[in-house]
Nucleic acid binder design. Structure first.
Lengths: 96, 96
DNA sequence: CAGCATCCCCATGGATACTG
DNA sequence: CAGTATCCATGGGGATGCTG
């Protein structure tokens, strides 16, 4: 339980992971999906997810720069939990 | 997603909720199951869970005092998520 | 037994500005 | 575009002691 929370418990990690469930996303795309998350925090959370091996970061040596984020196979093992959390929140958010 | 994390995202909430899935527990019992959680933190986390309507607190007017905690029906709606998180953690904790 | 009261620290996270 | 770099505020959480 503590292990799981250490991985998805960050302020924005759940949302980021859920977005990436849908497929690869560029940094800017993620930003648009997390309007309340600062650029700095998005970077930090992504770095932590990368360190935990849940997210893969790919840098394309282009100008302007392009960076894509995607779930690793390990990241995908969280899928059912993420979907469950998302559904629970959707269903009960008004009760909080 | 954010709603769900706001409810189970606390440092000890997941563990507390998981313990209560098994049934009613007294304060002291919970403490023994969370040896790394201070008494103060356990109290605080329980109060928050109570405020969110996930946990019911029953005080028995006895000497010495007895207080029991149990999941509300609303709390039980988290069951599948909690079990999922617990299983994921058990399976992958060594990878972290 | 099951707590509250205090004091305190530091990690988490926010705001803003700058850059290859 | 996709970040760093800095500075700063908040509050989550710890240690300790007291109590009905």
């Amino acid at each position: 339980m503590e292990a799981t929370l250490s991985v998805i418990g960050g302020r924005w990690k759940g949302v980021v992971l859920f977005q990436l469930l849908k497929g690869k996303k560029r940094f800017g795309e993620l930003r648009r999906h997390l309007p309340n998350c600062t650029q700095r925090m998005l970077t930090l959370q992504l770095r932590e997810l990368e360190e935990d091996g849940l997210v893969k970061r790919t840098v394309f040596p282009e100008v302007p720069p392009r960076v894509e984020y995607e779930l690793t196979p390990f990241g995908h093992t969280l899928e059912s939990i993420l979907v469950g959390m998302r559904e629970w929140g959707e269903k009960y958010k008004t009760r909080l």
